[in-house]
Simulated assay, not measured.
Amino acid sequence: MSTNTYYAPHGGHPPQTELLTDRAMFTEAYAVIPKGVMRDIVTSHLPFWDKTRLWVLARPLTGFAETFSQYIMEVASGGGSEKPEQDPNAEGVLFVVEGEIEVTLQGKLHVLKTGGYAFIPPGTNWQLRNRHKDTARFHWVRKHYEAVDGVPLPEAFVTNEQDIEPIAMPGTEGRWVTTRFVDSSDMRHDMHVNIVTFQPGGVIPFAETHVMEHGLYVLEGKAVYRLNQDWVEVEAGDFMWLRAFCPQACYAGGPSRFRYLLYKDVNRHMKLTLNAPR
C-alpha cells in the first residue's frame, strides 16, 4: 500500500499586501473553513495541555450541527497532557496527520505515527505526550456518547489507516472507497470517523440528503463539492461542516486522488423532544 500524506496547518500570518478575499463561508446549511484562515490569531488553548495550541473546526451550535466538536491539535516536542479530557461523557477519536504522539490508554502505552488512529470511549483514563523532536499535529473529534440500555460501551483501540483495507462503494470499480475503522453494524458505536478516497474523476453521483451531520477535513487533493445549492472548490487543508439534510455530492478534480476525514453520527434513535439531552 502506498504511503499516505496529509495536509496539516502550520499557522503564521499572510503579509499586509495580500488580498483578504478567500473561500471561507458560513451559511444556514453548511460552513467552509479553508486552510488559508487557519492562522496564528485564531488558535485556542486548553486547560492541562502543555506546549499545545489548537484550531477549533467545529463545535455544537444550536440550529446548526449539534452533535460534535473537532480540533486540529498542535503539540510541540515535550508537550501533551496528563488530564486531556474533562468531560466524563465524551468519547473521542484521534487521527495523526503529522509527527508522532504517545497515547496511554488505561495504563497501556501506544505510539501513534502519521496515519495513526485511536478511539477513546467515555470515562477512559488516558494521557498524551509528544516525546519526538518534531511538532505533532492530529485531529481530535469529540462527541457526547449516547448510551443505550443493554448495549455495552465500545472498547478503546489503536490502529493505523495503512493497516486497514479500504472498502469500495458498489459499482464504482474502486474509484470511490472508504476506510472504515469500525464495523458499521456495531451498535456500540454512535459515531463513525472514516477516511473517504476518490480517484481523479471519481464522483458522488447523486445529492446525498440524510440525517447524519458531517465534518469533512480534506487530507489530500482537490475537488468541487456540492453543498446545498452551491458548488464549492475545496483542497487539502480545507474543512466542511454540514448540518443534517444538507444535500451533498462531489467531483474529484485530480490530478491526484481526493481524500477526506469524515465524521458522522450514527446508530441511534432520533430525539423526539427538542434539545433533549444526548
Rank of each mutant, 00 (worst) to 15 (best):
Tyr145Gly: 01
Ala244Pro: 00
Lys264His: 05
Gly171Asn: 06
Asn160Ser: 08
Asp190Trp: 03
Arg278Cys: 05
Val234Pro: 04
Ile72Cys: 01
Pro122Arg: 13
Phe95Gln: 08
Leu57Gln: 13
Asp134Gln: 13
Met187Val: 04
Val177Asp: 07
Trp176Pro: 00
His210Met: 02
Met187Asn: 10
Thr114Gln: 14
Thr5Lys: 11
Asp186Leu: 07
Ala118Arg: 03
Gly79Asn: 11
Thr114Glu: 13
Asp22Cys: 04
Thr178Asn: 13
Pro88Phe: 12
Thr27Asn: 06
Met240Asp: 02
Thr159Glu: 00
Asp183Val: 01
Met191Lys: 08
Val211Leu: 14
Trp176Met: 12
Gly150Pro: 12
Thr17Cys: 01
Cys250Tyr: 12
Pro277Val: 06
Met169Asn: 08
His139Asp: 01
Phe258Glu: 10
Val234Thr: 00
Val232Leu: 03
Asp163Ala: 09
Glu233Tyr: 06
Met187Glu: 09
Phe157Ser: 08
Thr159Met: 07
His144Arg: 15
Gly221Gln: 11
Met212Ser: 08
Val234Leu: 02
Gly174Phe: 12
Pro277Gln: 05
Glu233Cys: 04
His210Lys: 05
Lys271Glu: 10
Gly12Ser: 09
Ala136Phe: 12
Gly215Phe: 04
Leu227Met: 10
Lys133Gly: 11
Pro122Lys: 12
Met270Tyr: 11
Thr52Pro: 01
Tyr6Arg: 05
Lys264Thr: 00
Gly11Arg: 00
Phe26Arg: 09
Arg226Gln: 03
Asp183Trp: 06
Val193Leu: 05
Ala168Cys: 09
Asp183Ala: 06
Ala147Lys: 15
Pro166Val: 11
